[in-house]
């Protein structure tokens, strides 16, 4: 199966879709925007007086300087995946709304090809967002007065982790759109799931039920754990837990890849057997 013709067809679908590009522009603004917000807030606190500057440096180091900026901005940006999630939900639910998923099959695509096209769109979007993240990191790192170029490549592995968390969570958004078919419904359920049920289960398990760490393996939580809070946030609360969290990253990479694969396999299985009405 050739990827280029599939992606070209998807490109034709969105090339003049102004609602798509409007939200895409929001995404492009949101990533550097939120980074700038945190960065300037941090700088403002530091410059408020010399004592605060010294204390912050001692406590948090240089979160917007290399190499820590890779981690800081990956953590901040990972909260914004729901915005491109809207794009993914739009793209799949449009196909149901206009019945064009059926038409694409009538015109000659195999059912698998239809899904592969969407898979590559989600993958391309994840890569694009990762590039935006990396550019924001580089710009922030270079303009930061604490810049230490010697450490620029240290922690750049967060590029891969950011790509994976983005692809994983956009896949979950796709799954909601694919199964629920209606844009508003899918969007509502996705945002609800993104923000509420897992968080409630986690808090209940941690503070009330004391039922171990099973919640680490929930789909969204598993990918969230790919990018733990930066050290100055994580270590302060519980250094032992934080160390464990960092050590578990490879395990969560495997879990996230497994979930992502499972979700896509489910979509292929589902589409192959059902009637397209």
């Amino acid at each position: 199966m050739k990827i280029a013709p599939l992606l070209y067809t998807e490109w034709l679908k969105v090339r003049r879709y102004w609602a798509f590009w409007g939200i895409f522009a929001l995404v492009l603004i949101a990533y550097p925007g939120i980074s700038y917000l945190f960065y300037t807030g941090y700088q403002d606190i530091r410059s408020s007086n010399n004592k605060m500057d010294a204390m912050l440096k001692l406590m948090v180091g240089s979160p917007f300087g290399f190499p820590e900026v890779w981690h800081t901005l990956a953590y901040i940006a990972s909260f914004l995946v729901f915005i491109p999630g809207v794009l993914v939900i739009m793209l799949i639910t449009n196909e149901y709304q206009y019945r064009t998923q059926r038409q694409n099959i009538l015109d000659g695509w195999k059912r698998d090809e239809f899904l592969w096209a969407k898979f590559w769109v989600v993958a391309a979007l994840s890569i694009l967002l990762t590039i935006v993240y990396a550019l924001v990191v580089l710009v922030t790192g270079f303009v930061n007065p604490d810049m230490a170029l010697a450490g620029i490549e240290v922690k750049s592995y967060y590029i891969g982790l950011f790509a994976l968390i983005t692809f994983n969570q956009l896949t979950i958004a796709f799954l909601f759109g694919f199964l629920l078919k209606r844009a508003l419904l899918a969007l509502g359920f996705f945002l609800f799931y993104f923000l509420i049920p897992e968080n409630i289960l986690i808090q209940l398990s941690r503070w009330r039920w004391h039922t171990g760490n099973w919640y680490h393996y929930l789909p969204m939580e598993a990918s969230d754990r790919l990018i733990p809070p930066p050290p100055y946030l994580g270590e302060i609360t519980n250094p032992a837990d934080y160390k464990q969290m960092l050590q578990a990253i490879p395990e969560h990479i495997l879990i996230s890849v497994a979930y992502t694969g499972l979700f896509w396999l489910f979509c292929f299985w589902w589409l192959r057997r059902r009637d397209l009405t």
Binding site: L12, R15, R16, W18, A19, Y98, R99, T100, R102, D107
Partner: peptide, 14 residues
């Protein structure tokens, strides 16, 4: 069944 937001010509390209 066509994409509502695209023109007739663009739909045929798809």
């Amino acid at each position: 069944n066509f994409y509502q937001y695209l023109s007739g010509e663009e739909n045929l390209r798809i």
